[in-house]
Amino acid sequence: MTAISTPQRRAGLVVPPWFLRHAGVLAVLLLIGVFTATSSDVFLTGANLLNVSQQIAVVAVLAAGLTLLMTAGGIDFSLGAIAAVAHGVAAQLIVAGVPDGPAVLVTLALGAAIGLVNGVMVTWFKVTPFVATLATSTALGGAALLIIGGQSVSIGDHLMMIGFGEVLGVIPVSVVIAAAVCVAAALVMRWTAFGRNAFAIGGNESAARLSGIPVVRTKLLLYTLGGLLAALGGVMLVARLGAASPGAGGLHLELTVVAAVVIGGTALHGGSGTMVGTVLGVLLLGVVANSLNLLQINPYYQDVALGAVLAVAAIANHLRGRRT
């Protein structure tokens, strides 16, 4: 059963439903935040928070696309690989002398095209989303390395605006982009027929189709949008690093994105999900990674922590779903 949508009254004040729904993640986030802040003086400094926000900006952009897709009952395991390919392609285009603007646009178009291929496999050829995107993910992982020849490709001082620009002198451009994408996704999910159709398809595809909702078209668009946003993430990645390199993007980014969305409470079987949850999930993973860093814990524990947080979140979601 999905969350009850009426506000609940407690001790005379009205708690909005989204708050109740995400109270668990919020509590864990605060707990880890407070703990890290007390054990390290660096955590709450402006420089560190800025650093964290830049690191999670890319994850947030990819997670926005995945939230929409998963709400419709889909899944995409190739987003990290698309980001890796995109960051390589953008770097090579710039090295080849293409001006920044066109290079970015071509890269975004490529990402969208790859997403569309995923969508075609899923809708026209009826391949399970898991298998289809696993296949593209594997192929693109190789392609990403081929594109940069297995070496770092520096872009010099290109794309400085995206990588290091600031709005109002403090807020990094990448964070602004991520925030804009997340807000846009939230609005789409609430106010557009396209977004609501995603919920209907994820909730009951047969009923949605019989109601005349364009199921195939919506799915194609969702996968395309996922690819486009992944490519945008790739561009942000290369802009921040100043170079395309073999380790960027790929499987680790992918897993972080999936984890963030699941932690945010989006149902794996579709039909329910929120951007607020996804953003909280992204924040939580970012803060956990940062705090492990600051507390100088062996970096190998990062993946252990990621897995553990994911497992706990998935169990919590299950328990919440069962409660009536």
Partner: peptide
Amino acid sequence: AHGLVPGLTVDENLDLTRRGLRRPWLV
């Protein structure tokens, strides 16, 4: 199985056929 989307609210379910036919942009 084929008529309603159980996870969506009553009001939204009531609007689905109209949305499927008219194909509006916004809700």
